[in-house]
Design a protein around this nucleic acid. Sequence first.
DNA 1: ACCTGAACACCGTTCAAGT
DNA 2: ACCTGAACACCGTTCAAGT
Lengths: 181, 181
Amino acid sequence: MSRRDEVLQAAIELLDEVGLDDLTTRRLAARLGVQPGALYRHFTSKQALLDAIVEQLVTLEPPPPATQEGWAEQVSATATVARAGMLAHRDGARLVATMGAPGPSARAGFERLVAVIAAGGAPAEAAMLATDTVFAYVNGFTIEEQARKVTGPSAVPRSERDRQFAAGLGLIIDGIRAALR
Amino acid sequence: MSRRDEVLQAAIELLDEVGLDDLTTRRLAARLGVQPGALYRHFTSKQALLDAIVEQLVTLEPPPPATQEGWAEQVSATATVARAGMLAHRDGARLVATMGAPGPSARAGFERLVAVIAAGGAPAEAAMLATDTVFAYVNGFTIEEQARKVTGPSAVPRSERDRQFAAGLGLIIDGIRAALR
DNA sequence: ACCTGAACACCGTTCAAGT
DNA sequence: ACCTGAACACCGTTCAAGT
């Protein structure tokens, strides 16, 4: 494990403890027992560090089981796994949304879903559109979920949020199904 | 126009000029010809200022034409207007997403859409679910759009983005229609 | 009511110099 | 290769005091 990876790991732990707003280069340096400036040997900027965190969040997703016959189940599995990856760390969805260019893992996930929907019978353009729509929904849902429902006095239980997410996703899948006919 | 409103207006102008990351209390004070501390007579914190900006972004939306017969057209009009409100100012979507509790205007827009879909024949629970799904899509789409497509070398023209947005929204509306039968 | 002056406790980042 | 020491140009916020 390179020193760079140790710094990255410490940053993720700090994120989970204090949240994105308090994830500070100086706090991170203190946790590593090092001066703030020392971080810049491993990351060119704080933004580069955040990008690396996001890449790891998105990479943790295992691919949906490719043995499935139906495209709908694969779309559902991909969306569920993407949401789970963002929920796995504090402020994960906001972090992903704030990011600039999508990393290699994000692009790979996108292409994979396009292929799945195309295999289901959609023309290339329609498959891309459907994929865009699914990810927009997943990101929008999870950002709001994590901002308002995970903690606090009006916390909605996880099982209820899972049901809501799946139901909304079902609406979109039905819409894609209708477009395929 | 109260002094508070003047400060708010100046903040929105500054947002459009420099973006959210450089919207600083000290820059805002300088633009108003005032010491930084003076702002705290009008807003209890920077976050309160940002909340007020969001409330204005969302309030600018006119209600969709209530004369429409079909619920689908009203859903479409509401979503389009919500997106336009966020696109109207730099980093508008990110600002809305970062916000904590939804303001009165956001809640009113939500209730209005629930009523529209319920009038279309959906049970109350299904109408809320559909509304959640539509707004999750709108927010997710617009955040990504504004983060990556509005500016820069790979800028996608507005007309193309409009088409994409409408097509994805159509998928969701088709899904809602299917659930109504 | 609105603002100044001055301070407090922080930020991200750079860079020569050390080991 | 990795880090220290020290600085630079900033932040958000508070609060007595002025008008």
